[in-house]
Design a protein around this nucleic acid. Structure first.
Lengths: 347, 347
DNA sequence: CTGAAAGCGCTTACAG
DNA sequence: CTGAAAGCGCTTACAG
């Protein structure tokens, strides 16, 4: 900057004015400064500028999740980054790999870099307060999970409602014996999984189906475990006429088990979470899809609102999951009840 | 920092020493400073530190690709970020959406933030020199594409070899009529696609198959176009006994076309690029998979080597694609030639 | 319309 | 083992 000022024969303040497009500079001066910038390949140092800037902003935002490579996080990042660049804001992203210790370290690093705000997919639902405490002063929005026990802004899928709608979808087709197949997520304390289970069971309960008539498989840690357990489930008696899988590992396992037993076209399947090319399987797999991009976008908007001084109560934004009918979820039970099913309350 | 120094009753230089773990501080002093840091929730400002740091490093790295949400980029980012945090380096990431103008703007922004280096999946293969020029002085490594016309470090899949191996795989099974189905990538000038085509055709040529005996579909822009064109292809005569698809859109289209015609178990299919749950289709889809994580990791290592002063000639790292046999690619032609096929040169 | 002085929070180079 | 002074590249608050 000194060099530019010298070459243009002006003070550094004038260079600053030109760079930042401030008023009160003569056209001729602007021209000379522009020329000098060009010739010297001058690139203003944003970090130095931030150091003394009035509003204390660094135009930097932190995004921290368990694993950036998982499709949900990647899609959310894409949306966040889009919002951010519109505001000239850069996004630093990192994976904590579901390690609360690493989560805190990275949050502190973000703070050391003076991030204006942080969007966090927490390592553990039960320890939200630690993350909030670490952020201390830096705006923080939870993504894909609700903070437990502490007030905080959050944007996530409405898991209970989505699972309830999945149950409803199958009930409407006449199914009465519907199995719940839950996968354990990377976090031991997975609030999302609990919500899906709750929403599913409540809806069946409202339809007058008692818990002992609902086969439940839990702890399906991976697709292979799911395949094995679900294979056994569909040989049991009375056999379920429909299956709901609460995560993609379970869905993958169910697809294999159903095809291996030749029942892929006779037992209905609805999965939670979409996956690429789900329409290539026979039949196409019906799912409730999370709106990862919408969640990312709204998280970013919420964060920017906070950074701009919005001081309302912390709020939770529940984003609906949407049904994608592809065939597997529209299979009717062999002996569909003649009595039409009427959807239970809630709406 | 002033406040910490005051509270601990020491100079700021001593606080600096404790924070950075420098030697020559008495244990008692360290203890007092630690205490003050704790009480004041002091977090050192990295940007300020960088401003005067001797080596000029900011411990920041930029990652810029067409779309962060695509699985290849997301997996590469994950690997890069892992390498980076080991070196206390943060990763700023962004998508240029295949717009060369936006690509330049973001590179300049990275430079303004004093990134130590940049990993770039270029918007356009033909304009590498613009990106290099923009980076000017900042280390730059190309990822997933080779710089054209200018020397530069690059890490990418060995597309020609991978496509050649796919051809070889099918030739070994006795196939002689193998179709090439190419998808047009987001960039008009897609070097990777050209390389796959070249590698495929060369291998068939070496096997004595002339170009007019190789059905070629190009411009399969999306899965639907691919489904349509491939459906027609497999009704043609003589019908190909095997299909090679050069990208996932083509693979998806081929899967649909083959199933709809009932030939999914009689015409072989090998795709380039893996996709999730490829083993759920019937038969499972054989692919050559790119090693996105390996590519990301090696790009990061290459970049760090440059930043550490390595000044050898710019080099290209070609990472092999690996065969994943899942069934579709192991189907033999109806009337397999009795004469055993011997793989052609190159090795 | 323009510029000289002070200072952002740190590190460097030095003196004790 | 410790600290006072200078300066990194900018912006702010001011005076002209």
């Amino acid at each position: 900057m000194r060099h530019v000022a010298a070459l243009a024969g002006v003070g550094t303040k004038t260079v600053s004015r030109v760079v930042n497009g401030e008023p009160n500079v003569s056209a001729a001066t602007i021209e000379r400064v522009r020329h000098a910038i060009e010739r010297l390949h001058y690139q203003p140092n944003l970090d130095a500028a931030n150091l003394k800037r009035a509003n204390g902003r660094t135009l930097t935002l932190g995004f921290l999740v368990g694993n950036l490579a998982d499709p949900f996080s990647a899609a959310a990042l894409r949306a966040i980054e889009e919002e951010a660049w519109e505001r000239k804001t850069a996004v630093i992203s990192a994976s904590h790999d579901y390690d609360p210790q690493r989560e805190l370290e990275i949050i502190n690093n973000f703070r050391g870099r003076c991030a204006d705000g942080i969007i966090l997919g927490p390592a553990s639902g039960r320890h939200s307060f630690r993350a909030l405490e670490a952020a201390r002063g830096t705006s923080l929005v939870f993504l894909g999970a609700l903070p437990m026990g502490v007030p905080g802004d959050a944007v996530t899928t409405d898991n209970a409602a989505g699972a309830g709608q999945a149950a409803d979808h199958l009930l409407r087709l006449g199914h009465r014996r519907i199995a719940y197949c839950g996968t354990v997520a990377a976090t031991a304390d997975d609030v999302a999984a609990e919500e899906r289970y709750r929403g599913f069971m409540e809806k069946l309960g409202q339809a007058g189906i008692t818990a002992r008539d609902i086969p439940v498989l839990q702890n399906l840690q991976d697709a292979e475990t799911a395949r094995h357990d679900i294979a056994r489930l569909i040989q049991s008696s009375p056999r379920p006429t429909a299956i709901f899988t609460a995560g993609t590992a379970g869905t993958a396992g169910a697809i294999k088990a159903l095809r291996e037993s030749g029942m892929n076209n006779s037992i209905a399947l609805v999965g939670f979470d979409d996956f690429p090319l789900a329409d290539l399987v026979d039949p196409g797999i019906t799912v409730f899809a999370q709106d990862a991009e919408g969640i990312g976008r709204i998280a970013a908007e919420t964060l920017f609102a906070r950074m701009d001084g919005f001081s309302g109560e912390p709020a939770t934004h529940l984003i609906p999951a949407t049904l994608k009918e592809r065939g597997s979820g529209e299979i009717r039970p062999r002996s569909a009840s003649r009595r039409p099913y009427v959807a239970a309350g809630i709406s």
